[in-house]
């Protein structure tokens, strides 16, 4: 029984190591050209776009080829079909816990109680504003792209609770991926799942800046 258990554990670890590696192949220059081709298509439009560069472990926020922001990917796990570097629409973003909620302005609310938009306020920084800010953005969420590509983002975080949440998020991703692959295979749909760890601020910024239906590039 112990021998069987140990054998299964060894097989499991071997499989885990193999499956999380980003698929690599020898045609690096061809890959770069595919990336540049894809970027050219998006850069021709007056939009901002993300390049999730899994190979160099960085996320680039760009517009017209200009680099606006560069974020480091602390760790990346890849599962599924190879992703070619074509512009892809980001269909949906969903937070693991609470989605940030827009404030609904109530015209009937007492203006004296709630007004923060006043030039006469003499205590700078002492008031709370009713608005969506960067700090309201989640750090653990999932992005769904066209062609069955999912990117799960989790924060690096520090501290016990943060570590626990990260472990829970990663375990959920790890356990669900083969099941979702089989399920999507039955449906005849492609499925690729990518797990990224970013620092908290970068995770919030990606959620803040990434708009649904925008075209972005995933490069491995």
């Amino acid at each position: 029984m112990k021998i069987l258990f140990s054998a299964l554990l060894v097989i499991f670890l071997a499989v885990a190591a193999r499956t999380d590696a980003i698929p690599q192949h020898s045609a690096g220059t061809k890959d770069e050209i595919d990336l540049l081709d894809a970027e050219l298509k998006v850069a021709k439009k007056p939009v901002i776009y993300f390049i999730f560069n899994l190979k160099d472990k960085e996320i680039l926020l760009k517009s017209r080829g200009i680099l606006l922001k560069k974020m480091k990917i602390e760790d990346v796990k890849f599962w599924g079909r190879t992703v070619d570097a074509a512009p892809r629409a980001m269909l949906k973003k969903s937070a693991l816990f609470k989605e940030p909620k827009r404030v609904n302005i109530d015209p009937n609310k007492d203006k004296e109680e709630t007004s923060t938009d006043t030039a006469t306020n003499t205590t700078p920084g002492a008031f709370e504003i009713e608005a969506l800010e960067l700090k309201d953005m989640p750090t653990t969420y999932r992005l769904e792209f066209h062609e069955g590509i999912f990117i799960s983002i989790s924060p690096k975080g520090t501290g016990f609770l943060s570590g626990l949440l990260k472990m829970a998020s990663y375990t959920g991703w790890y356990v669900s991926r083969p099941i979702l692959t089989i399920w999507n295979s039955i449906k005849g749909s492609p499925y690729t799942s990518i797990y990224l760890i970013l620092n908290e601020e970068d995770a919030r910024l990606v959620y803040w800046s990434l708009e649904e239906k925008s075209e972005n590039i995933i490069y491995k």
Partner: peptide, 9 residues
Amino acid sequence: LEACGIYLS
């Protein structure tokens, strides 16, 4: 499941 998933993906 993992093996199936690897094969299919």
